[in-house]
Nucleic acid binder design. Sequence first.
DNA 1: CAGTGGTCTAGACCACAGC
DNA 2: CTGTGGTCTAGACCACTGA
Lengths: 238, 238
Amino acid sequence: MAASLHQRIRGDIEDRIRSGTWPPGHRVPPEHELMAAYGCSRMTVNKALSLLADAGAIVRRRGAGSFVSTPHPHIESVALAIPDIAHEVASRGWRYAFRLVGRRLRAPRRRDAGEVELAGSGKLLALQGLHLADGRPIALEDRLIAVDAVPGAVTAAFDSEPPGSWLLQRVPWTRAEHRIGAAGADADAAALLEVEPGTACLVLDRRTWRGEQPVTRVRQRFRGDAYDLVAHFEPGLR
Amino acid sequence: MAASLHQRIRGDIEDRIRSGTWPPGHRVPPEHELMAAYGCSRMTVNKALSLLADAGAIVRRRGAGSFVSTPHPHIESVALAIPDIAHEVASRGWRYAFRLVGRRLRAPRRRDAGEVELAGSGKLLALQGLHLADGRPIALEDRLIAVDAVPGAVTAAFDSEPPGSWLLQRVPWTRAEHRIGAAGADADAAALLEVEPGTACLVLDRRTWRGEQPVTRVRQRFRGDAYDLVAHFEPGLR
DNA sequence: CAGTGGTCTAGACCACAGC
DNA sequence: CTGTGGTCTAGACCACTGA
C-alpha cells in the first residue's frame, strides 16, 4: 500500500482536521515549512495542498496562507446516492422484478415544452412500469424515451428488464438533472402501488442528456413508507 | 480572466466531453501529444488530466491511456443542494420568517437510541418551529440540540432566528447525514402547516456532528406542494 | 518490447497580502 | 518590503499495459 509522498502529506493534514487538532480557520503550515518537515520539493507539498483545497478541506489565499475550511451549508452540497432501484432492492436482500404495465408510441403533447424538446423531430415512447421487491410494488415509473435519440427502443421488449438499465447499456448519458419532491398518490398510481389514494410518495424526476440531446425523462414514485434517500457530507475529507 | 494553461487544457477537454465529440469510453490523447499540441511541459498536461481524473470526468490507466468516463448510476452520486431554508426562501423573492411554537428542556427518551447518544451525559433542548414564506407556512421543524455540546442554547431565544442559523455560527460542524423521504402530515403537523391531515410532505432528517460529538438532529417537513430539492450531475465537468 | 501514466526534483517568475 | 501561493519548466526514474 506504499502511498506516495503527496498522499501521505495530505493524509497527515486530513487527520489533524478530522481529529479537531486543527479546527476550522486554523492556519496550515506554509509550503516551505512542509518541504523542510518532509524533506521534499515544493511541487510535492504543493500537490498535496492543492488537492486538499480542490476537495474543499482547506482554503488557500495567495499572499496570506492556507486555512482549514469552515463548512457553510447555504451553498454546500452533499453527495446523494440516486439509486438504481434493481441494485438497491437486491442489496437489501429482496428479489427484484420489473413489470411493464403500459406502453405507447405517441407524439409529444404540444402544451408540454419539455416533451416537445425531448421528442425533437420524432416521437416519444411512453412506458409505465412497476418496480417490485419480493413481489410487492415499491415504485411506479413513468418514462418517456426520445425515439430520435434511441431508435432501438421501439423494438425493445421492456417486459422484464427495466428501461433504465436497458438505456444505460446503450445510451451512455453525459448529464442528468434530478428533482425530488413529495406528492400524494393519485387514484391510478395508488391502485398500482397497492396503497390508499393520497398516500404520500417520494417523487423523483430525472432528465437525462447525451451531449446536448435529451434522451429520456422519468418520474419514479416511491411508496413513502418503503423508501428513503440518504446523503452524507464531510467537507473534503476522504 | 486569463486562465492558466492547465485550466485551458482541462476546459478544452471538458468541452469535447460535454458536446459529445468525445463520448464515454473515448480515448483522450496521451500526455506527450498534448505537450506537443499546447507546446508545454508534461507536468502542465499532467496536472490538467489528473484534475479531470480526480473529478471523475476521465479514467486514467497507467500503461493503457486515459478514457472518458462512463457514468454508472448504481454507484454514482449527485450533488444535491441541501437548502438553508431562509436563504432559499429569500432567493425566490419571498419574505422569510421563523416562528417558534414549542420549546422544552428534557431528558432523552431511553427507548430512542439516537436521542440517548445525542444527549450524552446531559439533557436535550427540544424545539419546534415554523418556517414561513410571505407569512405562509412552508416547513415545520422539530429539532433536538445536545446541551452538552452547545451549552449556550438553553439561554438563546430562537424566537425569530431559526436554530439552524444560530447553531451554524457557534458550532461549526464537521460531518452531517441527511435522509430524505415522504410522509403524510399527522394532525398536529397539518394544523401548523395549514394543510389537510395526510397531505404529502417531503421529510428531511439531518444529523450533525462536530468531530465525534453529535450536535443536533432535526426533522424538517416541507409542504409537498411547495418545495422540491434539485440535483444536477455531470461527471466531473465544471 | 514501446507506450503510457505516477511521481518527484530543483529550480524559476509572477501576483498578491499584510506590514 | 517579505512571505505566500499559482504556475510552469525540463528533465528523471519507475510501474504497469498490451502487443
